[in-house]
Design a protein around this nucleic acid. Structure first.
Lengths: 349, 349
DNA sequence: GACGAATGCTAAATCATTTTAGCCAAATCG
DNA sequence: CGATTTGGCTAAAATGATTTAGCATTCGTC
């Protein structure tokens, strides 16, 4: 790590002043135009050395402003997601956003689109989010309650659409409440399960926590006793393996599992195989369709949700609507998640 | 689609002029400071209407420049990848880059990091890539030959590191040539395969095409006849299913498969299951470890490559080195991909 | 009816950079 | 030796937005 970067930054003017030349000369050298601008080799060399020595870093805002073509508008759009969340969903959102942006690009209108990430629960620490000088609009997804609280309080100074979360004052796109939790419980019960369980990670997004509690309520209502709740440290398969092994070692019983993430289901598959429990014969498994490979698991995994296509299709037009200056009041759009019943929850005779 | 956006863009000055007020007034209304700045409600209303009617879009470069705190340097870094490529690798690169950037952030130095995407083979159409006014540095990955050619010719006006590809004039990080192709051939042969085959998608990155040809060469050298080559339309499991079904329907034979992508291996698993070919009993399968779930497939998939961790760990410091103004000559770093032998290539008695 | 305060605005500076027009001295030419 | 060219630079404008200081009015009060 160079300590040099701890010094204050310098501008082109300061370099010029330091050398007793004009800033035009420095700029010419920086863009390698010193020959056509007729800066002598000796001066160019002095300038180059100063640039190096003082650790000059160009200010992109200055450059962009200067090179801006008049009468052109440029939209800076971003998808904000957490480092911890699965990416395929986000990629799809980007794809849709990009396609829509391309369709709207004209002679005078350009769009720049990026994915940016924040640490789950620490959205508030993301630099520039509260300033109005970075984004024209954003789609925010995979937030934790702490992030939601921050957003509810902060009110971003630019259009935003929130995915999978209901936050007052924002345009939100989310799945029909309780649907996934209730249906996954029904799917397991219909498959003949007597001892259903749910596995989820420690960190709960609002969508996930609603799924879990709706699952609990439904099971309790139908079977007069609550399901087992298994908590894994993270969302990766090996987290599920550790949590389930512990569960069984402690005498836990389970003949039907709702995994709030497909990657948890993958870990569960492994544990059941190792314990010689057949799927769905001994234990049925249902996941949420956040993984494109779910239908290729052995056996193919039944999934709910994964309404991501649908949510994104709603969210993107909503964002552009705001960008175009609509003054509509924030509203919520509810999406019904698709249900894919596959072999992993086949009814037992 | 609003046609309004086809009109030339307007600036704050133009709005002001149009209304016969000052640009300061317009700016005050835009930032909702009209009360403290003592703009009358009537004027504020007129301004707001004009903003709406003329379709004003703020120029972020102007705003950022204005709000720039002197003596502060800001690095804009990006990871450029193709829409078509698998994302987990990229997420990891972002993670590493972000961590390194955070470690280097000081009172006077900030970093902004994003993932941006281009259509495979059309990197040249990405706006702003040839201008020096957007990025301080980039990591480029998942390029196709057309992109490579573009990069070789263009010479980007900012530091860059290319992953998985050798391009003259750039810092490149890639796997040891031929390693993956040769080792995957050896793994299949060691498992006792007599009729090895390889499956890949139509679009070939340089890394992939090298893997395929090294595989071919190795097989031909050892078995005196070339492997079957199966080409799928895309990289998704269903593409592999279509291609393999066609291959078998056409009388193709195969008792060992090298899948250049794990998602292709997933599709292959399905086809083999449906044809009652056991893995690895009847057919051995080896993939490249671009999928975190490979070890959880049934049976667990042997993988090569997936040297992504290692490549990223090399690439990130290389980028920062350039950002710090090092004038080193571009060089290549070769990484040896790890090899994970799992059940899918277990030797037959 | 004079003074102070409130109201409603504007002019100009500032942020960092690039480019255009042009200045002055030295070299070359006729 | 005067005119023209070349070399080596600089001053200043321009890009778009925000903020600070301040200028006119009008209003209220004693």
């Amino acid at each position: 790590m160079k300590t040099s970067e701890n010094r204050p930054a310098v501008t082109i003017h300061e370099i010029a002043q330091h050398l007793g030349v004009s800033s035009a000369a420095v700029s010419s050298v920086l863009s390698n135009r010193q020959v056509e601008r007729r800066i002598s080799d000796a001066t160019a060399k002095r300038i180059r050395e100063a640039i190096q020595k003082l650790g000059y870093v160009p200010n992109m805002a200055g450059r962009r402003l200067r090179s801006h073509r008049p009468a052109t508008r440029e939209f800076n759009l971003a998808i904000l997601t957490s480092f911890e969340a699965p990416l395929p969903l986000v990629a799809q959102a980007l794809h849709t956003l990009q396609a829509e942006a391309d369709a709207r690009s004209t002679q005078h209108t350009r769009h720049a689109i990026a994915i940016e990430m924040f640490h789950a629960g620490r959205l508030s620490e993301k630099p520039g989010l509260l300033d109005a000088d970075r984004y024209h609009g954003v789609i925010i997804t995979n937030t934790l309650p702490a992030d939601d609280a921050f957003l509810a309080k902060a009110r971003l100074p630019f259009p935003a659409v929130v995915l999978g979360r209901r936050i007052p004052g924002y345009f939100c796109v989310l799945e029909v409440p309780d649907f996934v939790g209730r249906r996954s419980a029904e799917v397991l019960l219909d498959a003949g399960c007597k001892n259903p369980a749910v596995i989820h990670g420690q960190l709960l997004t609002q969508a996930t926590s609603e799924r879990v509690s709706a699952f609990q309520r439904t099971i309790r209502a139908r079977r007069k006793q609550p399901p087992a709740i298994i908590v894994s440290e993270g969302l990766q398969p090996h987290n599920a393996i550790v949590a389930l092994d512990e569960f069984f070692a402690g005498g836990g019983r389970c003949d039907g599992l709702f995994a709030v993430t497909d990657s948890l289901a993958v870990g569960a598959y492994r544990v059941f195989q190792q314990r010689n429990l057949s799927i769905p014969g001994d234990v049925a498994v249902v996941g949420v369709g956040d993984h494109e490979l779910a239908e290729f698991f052995t056996p193919p995994l039944s999934t709910l949700a994964g309404a991501n296509d649908a949510m994104v299709s709603e969210a993107v037009p909503l964002l552009f609507h705001q960008l175009e200056g609509s003054s509509d009041r924030p509203r919520e759009i509810l999406v019904v998640p698709p249900v894919y019943l596959r072999e992993s929850t086949q009814r037992r005779h």
